[in-house]
Amino acid sequence: MGLHETPLLFDFELVSSEDLTFMPMSVRFNLDRFGLRISLAQWQLLPHADRALLARFPVDEDAQIEPNFDHALFEMMRTHANLEPDWFTPDAEPAWRNAAAVPDGLLRHCHTAGLAAPNAEVWARLDPFKRYVLTKLSRKPEASHDFLPAMREFGLVG
């Protein structure tokens, strides 16, 4: 699978990420799957064209499908920021990958927002990337401003 024609953005990201000032979820996904970490300030050091290119990489779970994300990021960071991303060991079994159980953080966020949480059947039907996004948006104790819009966009809230 090759690069997408345009940056991958959900509707709920358009306001905050359309100009790529902030990292889109597609980039966050690929950073997490390759075990790479960059700060928002480092992201913003990259030229817009490089950020757009990184946001066009596929979001498939299989790291073998498009192994060039990490190479591209390293080259861009060296060229434009004289830095390298930090490495970490990715979680071998992240909560979003388990289609049989809704993550606790997501359940807490739904409760806090007064929303009915998706049941295991609904959770299992979600595309893995959407499960990743909801898990990522609900990982911190405080509510993300994108959580409710993402739930709506994914058809989990009326």
Score class of each variant (00 low, 15 high):
L3F: 08
H4F: 14
E5T: 14
T6D: 14
L8W: 04
D11I: 04
V15K: 14
S16P: 05
E18R: 15
L20P: 02
P24T: 07
P24I: 06
S26K: 03
S26L: 03
V27T: 03
L31S: 03
L36G: 02
S39C: 01
L46E: 03
L46I: 02
H48C: 02
V59T: 13
E61N: 12
A63D: 07
A63C: 10
P67Y: 06
F69H: 02
F69R: 08
D70V: 08
A72I: 13
E75L: 13
M77R: 03
L83W: 04
E84I: 13
T89E: 15
E93H: 15
P94V: 01
P94T: 08
P94F: 05
R97C: 06
N98H: 10
A100M: 11
P103L: 11
L107W: 02
R108N: 13
H109Y: 05
C110V: 02
T112L: 12
L115S: 00
N119W: 11
N119Y: 04
N119Q: 10
N119G: 07
E121F: 07
P128F: 12
F129G: 11
F129I: 10
R131I: 04
L134Q: 09
L134A: 00
T135D: 01
K136Q: 11
R139N: 06
R139V: 01
E142D: 11
E142P: 02
H145G: 08
D146G: 03
P149G: 07
P149K: 12
M151D: 00
G155W: 01
